[in-house]
Design a protein around this nucleic acid. Structure first.
Length: 424
RNA sequence: GGACGGAUGGCUGAGUCUGGUUUAAGGCACCGGUUUUGAAAACCGGCGUAGGGGUAACUCUACCGGGGGUUCGAAUCCCUCUCUGUCCGCCA
């Protein structure tokens, strides 16, 4: 969420940003309501000051008549104060509701455009798409043929979009996780296994809308808990309400969790197999930084994603996400799109990771601050997140790129020591 | 799951029974000053967060785990939730 004062003082820029990001919010109304709210807050304060003074004088009233008279006066003032307070709270709630819909400001270098067609390719990986001398299978055909993936049993036990992984594919899945965690630990990330459920208030703080008509979130009946869609939720929530010392920053964490998404309305050939599923495992990078560190941290996260996909020998391209395709909290977002030879007719790029700099947008809602030593006051930290590996999609890339004509799959060199085999 | 405690500023810790000179005592830590060759000690002063008003000095409001209630007035009384401690039960 953006700062109200910022919105009021920069309403034109905020409106332009909403337009660029395809979000319609009545910014003028917010500015007007906020101006009124401040005036009402002022009068609440003044009434309270007067009432406090009366209350204080009652203790030293000289007789009971005097006391009763003052009590009545105090009662009246409190009633007026309560009325003003109600007015204020109603305005505040209305402003807050508008504020939640205003997206973060976008980085000045973000490509401006309506949707993902305006995304800008900025680099490619070390490996180029491979020329096959046979027709490559898509991961689902390959996985079913080899007995690695079973959607039928998943549908029977749980529902459409759920799956069982079996055999060597499980070993590969675990090896990818293990590899990612080791690499991230080397680079100063604290490995963290998080809960797979979180309070709705935490989901909202990160920018998710649980329990709405268009929600992508599974929620637990008769509780305020939901299944997380990403460890970003729990890692951010972990520090909710905290004030950090500036010299603790940056904090880098590597979250390991399952992710659950309803994926309402998504279907079709492009989301076949493991590409779009209701449950997957993700190794997630998350960082809290000082404001001046966040751009550099964003570059670092993007570079790590590149290094990881180079390591598993997958061709990819990096795109700078256009304004219209950014989520609400993101100031800037880079996606890695891996080459998936089995996707579409003859191969397509498919999103495998994304890294966002959310600046202070999430921190303001979650109330995560930092304090500089010997300085008065606190400021909001910046938060960033990035996918190391989303299992399921990383598995698609490995299966499809490293498959052989006989249905076997070569294990990328970096995973062989962990898996203990070169082929599966 | 049961019983009984507890949660107060950066830390420690009084205040809660009995609501009102308490602007939340005292101590520790920290910062500035005096003193000293330097340091320690001593002494003096400062020492929270957020929001509002003011060019500023300054000032007002809210905050004693969260939320609600009683009252003119709540750290203090009542309800509720969360966390935590001890004991009991159950358990991989």
């Amino acid at each position: 969420m953006l700062d109200r004062k910022f919105i009021v003082e920069n309403s034109d820029a905020v409106k332009q940003n909403c337009y660029n990001r395809n979000v319609s919010v009545d910014v003028d109304l917010l500015v007007e309501l906020e101006t009124t709210r401040k005036a009402v807050a002022q009068s609440v304060q003044e009434l309270n000051t007067a009432a406090n003074a009366i209350s204080k004088s009652i203790g030293s009233a000289k007789d009971s008549d005097e006391r009763e008279r003052l009590k009545e006066e105090g009662r009246l003032l409190r009633e007026q104060k309560d009325a003003a307070q109600h007015h204020h709270d109603a305005l505040d709630a209305e402003i807050h509701a508008l504020q939640l819909h205003i997206p973060n400001m976008a980085h000045p270098d973000c490509p401006v455009g309506e949707d993902d067609k305006a995304n800008l390719e900025i680099s490619t990986g070390k490996h180029s798409p491979r020329k096959f001398d046979f027709k490559p299978l898509d991961h689902l055909d390959l996985g079913e043929k080899r007995g690695w993936i079973d959607f039928e049993a998943g549908a029977a036990t749980t529902g459409n979009g759920f799956y069982f992984l079996k055999g060597d594919l499980v070993l590969l899945d675990l090896a990818v996780q293990q590899f990612a965690v080791r690499e991230l630990v080397k680079r100063g990330f604290t490995p963290t296994i998080t809960p797979d459920l979180a309070r709705d208030s935490v989901l909202e703080g990160i920018g998710f809308m649980p329990r709405g008509p268009e929600t992508q979130i599974y929620s637990i009946q008769d509780s305020d808990l939901s299944l997380i869609g990403t460890a970003e939720i729990t890692l951010g929530g972990m520090y909710s309400g905290k004030t950090l010392a500036s010299d603790e920053l940056p904090i880098k964490m590597c979250g390991i969790s399952h992710c659950y998404r309803t994926e309402a309305g998504a279907a079709g050939r492009a989301s076949r197999g493991l590409y779009r599923v209701h449950q997957f495992t993700k190794i997630e990078m998350f960082a809290f930084t000082l404001p001046e560190q966040s751009d550099a941290m964003h570059d670092e996260l993007r570079q790590i994603e590149c290094d990881l996909f180079d390591a598993i020998e997958i061709p990819y391209r990096v795109v700078d996400t256009a304004t219209g395709d950014l989520g609400g909290p993101a100031y800037r977002k880079f996606d890695l799109e891996a080459w998936m030879p089995g996707r579409g007719e003859g191969g397509e790029w498919g999103e495998v990771t994304s890294t966002s700099n959310c600046t202070d947008y999430q921190a303001r809602r979650l109330n995560i601050r930092y304090k500089e030593k010997d300085k008065k006051g606190t400021q909001f930290v910046h938060t960033l997140n990035g996918t190391a590996f989303a299992l399921s999609r990383a598995l698609i890339a490995i299966l499809e790129n490293h498959q052989n004509a006989d249905g076997t799959v070569n294990i990328p060199a970096c995973l062989r020591p962990i898996m203990g085999q070169e082929k599966m």
